[in-house]
Nucleic acid binder design. Structure first.
Length: 200
DNA sequence: CAAACGATTTTCT
DNA sequence: GAAAATCGTTTGG
């Protein structure tokens, strides 16, 4: 399991890049499931117009981002889907990395059952709203530690070379003015589990 | 207290 | 390509 210090790195973009190839593990409802992280996006605190914490909005919803790194920030989007973020940086610096896609590894049959599918296809986890269903993540896991039983991230020795990693503008943040252009989305090239860009 | 809206996905045409 | 599904958070009166 990754040490607490990993999440305290001050450069959230650096963490987003290095989370690729790590393994996200959930142990929820006595079901052990996991997947390799293949797509992430960095959200950088008060100065990022795309971040929920832009303008120093420390509310009940965004509060966990102000905690020290190493927790999960789970929230509901469009009234139907949960998205999972990894809180980073130190206390008072609301940075987070959105996990957009994973490649299923352990407990695939449990994940298929959760998302009501028969066989393994990229549709299982190739989107931020779907991987949370597959891993059994919901609002009950808002603020849980990534160093605890329910959720954690492991390094299983998967090494990605720079040429296997692509980066570009983030998804769904066109409203964020100049911040929308920042290449803070990272994904593994040619990996079928990376999410498709919406509407194309 | 009421109303609008979003870091998405699926389905239908 | 367009639209619906659906609810906690935010914003305004």
């Amino acid at each position: 399991m990754l040490p607490e210090e990993f999440y305290h790195e001050q450069n959230v973009v650096k963490i987003a890049r290095s989370l690729l190839g790590k393994v996200l593990v959930s142990n929820i409802d006595d079901q052990y499931t996991s997947g390799i992280i293949v797509e992430t996006e960095a959200y950088s605190g008060q100065n990022d117009r795309a971040s929920h914490a832009f303008g120093d909005r420390n509310t009940n919803r965004t509060g966990v981002m102000y905690q020290p790194g190493g927790r999960a920030y789970v929230y509901l989007i469009y009234g139907m889907y949960h998205l999972l973020n990894v809180v980073t940086n130190v206390e008072g610096k609301p940075d987070a990395v959105l996990i957009r896609a994973i490649e299923p590894l352990d407990g695939i049959e449990h994940m298929l059952k959760r998302i009501k599918q028969q066989k393994l296809t990229p549709k299982l986890t190739n989107g931020p709203g779907k991987l949370t269903i597959a891993l059994g993540i919901n609002l009950e896991h808002y603020g849980v530690s990534l160093l605890g039983n329910f959720l954690c991230i492991e390094d299983r020795g998967i090494i990605l070379k720079d040429e296997q990693i692509a980066s570009g503008p983030r998804v769904g943040v066109e409203y964020a003015a100049e911040d929308a252009l920042r290449p803070w989305r990272f994904w593994v090239k040619n990996n079928p589990f990376v999410s498709k860009v919406r509407g194309k």
